[in-house]
């Protein structure tokens, strides 16, 4: 069993390095293609040609593109992702100040979403075609159909401005009490949950239905096992793989896809950092952010696959 997992991890790491290399080239080419550069972004409306040329030279942007890329790559391989071009802070420091925030938001949302989504998904699969199934389906589809920024803004107007239950902004530094913590995260987690719960629930339902249709479950039913027992002991272990996959994909969305929530609630996460970096053409920072999103995606998928292997007796004993 452990051999399978070890082999999987090793091959995944090799693939991840390849993928990251490819992504870094793509990102570099992307930032090069973008019109304007960091010197123009810094100077803004004051960007006269000579001022831009002077600043470019000062930032070493006048070197050829491939040299800059390899300089950056060399730095990264020796453990230094470089410094931000716009504010000269170490990229590692900028990331370190945002990554925990993003992870925190993702974790809290996951804790809220995953149980709700899995329960709803499994129940509507078991009772598929019932009124419950239809209602749950209709509700989730409707929620997903509302633009996220509309949900966020509406939530703020209702719960923060009118009712004053929660703050409209979600940034707090330092140690805060549990009560404060709950209030701060309430609205952003609610907004993210609206979208995520719906998707995860539908994916869970699909995976469950798939398994329930399979021959060994039918066999169990024929043997006369009670429906709930069939679901819990026979079907559920076999759906762990696909469900873990679904959860992993949803969580990877939470890191980079939370941009609208981060903007509306002024939450200092990684997504906003990347948006800033793109708009100021701050190449080292863009690279670092994208690398993190990419690694997180690959890592979560790997975890899901491992979960799938461990839960599947046939794969486990190979």
């Amino acid at each position: 069993m452990s051999m399978v997992v070890v082999r999987l991890v090793l091959s995944r790491i090799a693939i991840a390095i390849l993928t990251l290399g490819f992504v870094s080239v793509a990102v570099f080419v992307g930032t090069e293609i973008l019109p304007g550069d960091v010197a123009e972004a810094i100077l803004g409306q004051g960007a006269t040609p000579e001022a831009v040329a002077g600043l470019r030279a000062a930032l070493h942007l006048d070197q050829p593109a491939h040299i800059r890329y390899f300089l950056w790559l060399g730095g990264l391989l020796s453990g230094d992702p470089g410094r931000s071009l716009v504010n000269n802070l170490p990229v590692a420091e900028l990331i370190a100040s945002r990554l925990p925030n993003s992870l925190m938001l993702a974790a809290v949302t996951a804790v809220v979403c995953v149980p709700i989504a899995l329960t709803l998904g499994i129940l509507s699969a078991v009772w598929r075609g019932s009124l419950f199934d239809r209602a749950a389906n209709f509700l989730t589809t409707s929620i997903v159909a509302v633009p996220e920024f509309l949900i966020a803004t509406l939530a703020v107007i209702v719960f923060a401005v009118r009712l004053r239950w929660f703050p409209a902004l979600s940034y707090a530094a330092g140690i805060i009490s549990l009560d404060q913590f709950f209030r701060l995260f309430a609205l952003p987690v609610f907004t993210l949950s609206c979208v995520l719960t719906a998707w995860m629930m539908r994916m869970t339902r699909a995976a469950m239905i798939d398994t329930l249709r399979s021959s060994y479950v039918e066999m169990a039913v024929l043997k006369g096992a009670r429906p709930m027992r069939v679901v819990l002991t026979h079907a559920l272990p076999n759906t762990i793989g696909p469900i873990a996959n679904a959860v992993a994909l949803s969580l990877s969305y939470l890191l980079g896809g939370a941009i609208i929530v981060e903007i509306v609630f002024n939450y200092p996460g990684l997504a906003r950092l990347l948006v800033d970096a793109v708009s100021t053409r701050d190449m080292p920072l863009v690279q670092a952010c994208v690398m993190i999103f990419c690694s997180a995606y690959l890592y979560l998928l790997m975890l899901a696959d491992i979960a799938g292997i461990l839960s599947n007796p046939r794969l486990r004993h190979r």
Partner: peptide
Amino acid sequence: LISIPSKM
């Protein structure tokens, strides 16, 4: 391609 967030 998938691993780069779509809105980005």
